[in-house]
Simulated assay, not measured.
Amino acid sequence: MANILLERTVPLPLDEAWRRITEWRRHGEGVPLTRVGPVPSEPTRVGTLVVARSGVGPLSFDDPMEVTVWEPPEDGAPGMCRLEKRGRVVLGWAELEVRPGPGGRTRVVWREEIRIRLLPSLFDGVVRRSARYVFGRALNRLLRQA
């Protein structure tokens, strides 16, 4: 199992940072060979199923994630979302959090525990480094684009 932690401080209000990191379809724009869509469609709430489809042709697989915590930021208070991975290939969870940062900025935290079914723990380091790189790029892209 690979654990990752990504943190960014951005010059955005809490609500805007939250909006950007929880636009599920846009997550696929930053992850190669991946499309993302919530089921049912917006608005997100506990029980929403977000499905990432990764791969090419017959080598594709779904990574369904269920929203188990949905606490948008309110009145300057932090916001947090937790997704539990429910797929046959990718297991684990992800947490996305926004909270007040220094100088009126927003601190964004992405925590993830990821395991690839049938992949021995010997490969956890490779999975960790790959996930940090891919999800780090995706997070940067989400936060940069309105």
Rank of each mutant, 00 (worst) to 15 (best):
V127N: 10
P78D: 01
W70F: 14
L96E: 14
L59K: 11
T68E: 06
A77C: 04
E112G: 08
F135V: 05
E74S: 14
A94H: 13
W70R: 09
R115P: 00
V67A: 07
G57C: 03
P72A: 00
P120T: 00
D63R: 08
V134R: 07
L119G: 00
R132D: 10
P58V: 10
L139D: 06
V134M: 06
E97A: 12
E97Q: 14
A131R: 04
V127T: 06
E113A: 13
E74C: 08
M80P: 00
P64E: 02
R105D: 12
R99P: 07
A94Y: 11
R88V: 14
V127K: 05
R99G: 13
V67W: 06
G101V: 05
G103F: 07
R107V: 05
R105G: 07
L119H: 06
D124N: 12
V109S: 08
L83P: 08
R86G: 05
L122R: 13
P72Q: 04
K85A: 11
P102D: 14
R128E: 12
I116V: 15
Y133R: 14
R107H: 14
L59S: 09
W110E: 14
M65C: 12
L83D: 03
V56D: 06
A131Q: 09
P72Y: 03
F123Y: 11
D62N: 08
W93H: 12
D63E: 12
G79V: 04
S130R: 12
P78E: 05
P58I: 10
G136M: 04
E113Y: 10
W70T: 08
L139S: 00
V134T: 12
L118V: 11
L96D: 14
R82I: 08
W70D: 01
P73I: 02
G79I: 05
E97S: 13
D63Q: 09
R117C: 02
F135Q: 15
P73F: 06
G57E: 05
D63Y: 00
A77Q: 13
V67L: 11
F123E: 01
E84T: 13
G125D: 03
F135I: 10
R86F: 00
I116E: 06
V89G: 06
A131S: 15
V89C: 11
G76H: 10
L118K: 11
P64F: 06
T106H: 02
P64T: 03
P64G: 02
L119Q: 09
D63W: 09
V109G: 06
